[in-house]
Design a protein around this nucleic acid. Structure first.
Lengths: 204, 204
DNA sequence: AAAACCCGATTGACTCGTCAATCAGGAGCC
DNA sequence: GGCTCCTGATTGACGAGTCAATCGGGTTTT
């Protein structure tokens, strides 16, 4: 289990090195267009070593996705239980996702482009985990409705889709632009998003 | 120019046949996983004929995308100029997109999965056309702000992204489910979407 | 010495796009 | 009508290239 005990110290580094290199090349060329040799070259290791640590190219992407997605699920869980308005809880979820992009845009690009938005291939494989996130957000909405903070005539699951879809679309624009916006833009995006979804476009 | 004059009548049918077959197999297996021979088999024509009408597998998808996307751009253009509130104009755009799915779910699946949401490959190629749609929606929002119907503290381009992202996410759920919802669900989706984006989740 | 780690040449499977051959039917001539 | 010529639609086998995954052997650690 404890990798640093059963393997020597260099080993875990190589594994990590391969994962990090994979993020870079997947982000640059897309999963399909990257050869396993590209990953090995980027990581500075031999071709075969990739297969020492992973069963397949697919497994490398799976690992990257699950590593990050479990954090998102935890963040949603955390937001649910945090004190504060339900509007603030939605804000916390959006903030986590935008921060993930701020912290590691390449990784987020790979996850969104190759998994989350890929209805064939990996999106189908990880549908369950992906939906768990939607359901977590839907739960926040449902609780908000029960608390009288949100209107009750919008199905929580529906609101969750609209919310998540909006977040991902904003990220996708940044991904297409290949820009890492200034830090202020992240907070601005979060605020505008929460304002739009909670208050709506029409003046109050 | 006039195809029916310079070519035998059967010819134009075969071309169409290939395009329709491509939609079916792209929707079923995804662009990357379909071989050109799959398209030919589905269309009931010989392998080589695909290359008689198209330069490459890519060109087949390009044609499908452009054919449909130009209709969307026209619909947005039309919505802009239609009389009525700007809220109704946004509703008209959403209605067109949902109707496109109702009318031909396979084609919409292909366009969304393989082009619109594919930041590598085709998404990049057609970025310009895709963005034209975003800008059209943004223009409706901007006009709505100028008319005092929408709040002015949300950037139009931003609102456009949130709106389109929400629409596409809802469609994506249907795509993943591989269901064609009952007709009533389409209108419901449009209404809830416009309500959410324009009025917001919080009670008025 | 055993075990873990690392290497990269090789294999085997796969598919795109090409191309030479065939086929169907219209136009012109007898 | 019947015959020939001709165009371009249609066919499918094949060449050429790609790439994932394996494998046998070398090196370092314990």
């Amino acid at each position: 289990m404890e990798r640093s005990v059963q393997q020597r110290s260099g080993a875990v580094d190589k594994r990590r090195q391969i994962l990090d290199a994979a993020v870079t090349v997947f982000a640059r060329q897309g999963f399909h267009a990257t050869r396993v040799s590209d990953i090995a070259d980027e990581a500075g290791v031999a071709y075969g070593l990739v297969y020492h640590y992973f069963n397949s190219k697919d497994q490398v992407l799976n690992e990257l996705f699950l590593e990050r997605w479990s954090l998102l699920l935890a963040a949603i869980e955390g937001a649910e239980q945090t004190p504060g308005s339900h509007r603030e809880k939605l804000g916390a979820v959006a903030a986590f996702i935008f921060d993930s992009y701020r912290h590691d845009p390449e990784l987020m690009k790979v996850i969104i482009v190759e998994v989350t938005r890929a209805a064939n291939s990996f999106g189908r494989t990880h549908l369950e985990e992906i939906r768990r996130a939607y359901e977590g957000i839907a739960k926040i909405v449902a609780d908000g409705q029960a608390a009288g903070e949100f209107r009750s005539d919008v199905a929580p699951r529906f609101a969750s889709q609209a919310f998540y879809g909006a977040v991902e679309q904003l990220l996708t624009e940044w991904i297409f632009d290949d820009v890492a916006p200034a830090d202020a833009r992240f907070d601005e995006a979060r605020n505008l998003l929460v304002t739009t979804i909670c208050d709506g476009l029409e003046p109050r």
